Amino acid sequence: MRKRSWGFVAVGLLVALVLAGVVSNYASSHPDGLDSSLLKGCTVNADDEITGGSCPARQAKDHELADSPLADYGIRGVDNGFLSTGLSGVVGVLLTFAVGGGLFWLLRGRRPAGGDGQPAGTDGGARDDRQPAGTAG
């Protein structure tokens, strides 16, 4: 990758890390449209726990990975909510970058045996317009 491309990737990664680590803490904690529609018909308390009524959300179950270290937009064991959310976002960005970068590295085009970065059969853009001996121009 060219030096200019590395700079672009580095700036993009830095922006993603700042957004995930800081700005994500200011996202709305209110339920989105799907959550709201599943709660119709139920009464909920201040902690968004269902206290009565009948709604589809009553049948909800925890996901199999609900006990994982990064579950529920936080890191298990970190008591500070702001720090927990920010760290989980940073870890998520770094994991995504690592997987994406690894896939890019595996799937990228290979360089020719010469290793000069030029496609096989080229001389780096220099043209030779001379005709081989014995041919008509």
Rank of each mutant, 00 (worst) to 15 (best):
M1R: 11
D35M: 06
D62H: 06
V22H: 06
S84P: 05
G86Q: 09
V11C: 13
S36P: 01
V93K: 05
L106I: 10
T85K: 11
G102D: 00
V18I: 14
A120F: 13
A120R: 15
P112S: 15
P56C: 05
V44M: 11
S37C: 01
G12F: 08
G125V: 02
G121W: 06
G33Y: 03
G53V: 13
L103H: 13
T122R: 10
I75R: 01
I75W: 00
V78N: 00
W105E: 10
G100Q: 04
G124V: 15
A133V: 14
H30Q: 04
L103D: 09
D47S: 15
R110Q: 11
L65G: 05
D123F: 13
A46T: 11
T43I: 03
N25H: 12
D67L: 14
V99N: 02
L14H: 06
H30N: 03
R58H: 09
A126M: 10
L34T: 07
L95M: 05
S24Q: 13
R111V: 01
D123L: 11
L14D: 06
S88M: 02
P132A: 14
L70I: 08
C42M: 11
F8T: 07
S28L: 12
D79V: 00
Y73K: 12
G134M: 14
K40E: 07
D79H: 01
V9H: 12
D116C: 03
A113M: 11
V11E: 07
L38F: 09
V23T: 09
E64S: 02
A113Q: 13
S68W: 14
G12D: 01
G137F: 02
S28C: 09
T96G: 15
S37R: 12
N25S: 11
Y73A: 12
D123S: 13
A27F: 11
S54P: 01
N45C: 04
G125S: 02
G125P: 03
V93F: 08
G86L: 09
N80L: 04
P31S: 01
V78D: 00
P132W: 10
G12H: 05
G53D: 12
G53K: 14
P132Y: 08
A136E: 15
P112A: 14
P132M: 14
G21A: 05
L34K: 09
V91A: 08
G7M: 14
A60R: 13
F97E: 05
L34R: 07
D47Y: 15
G7L: 15
G137D: 03
R110V: 11
A57Y: 03
L65W: 04
D72Y: 13
R76N: 02
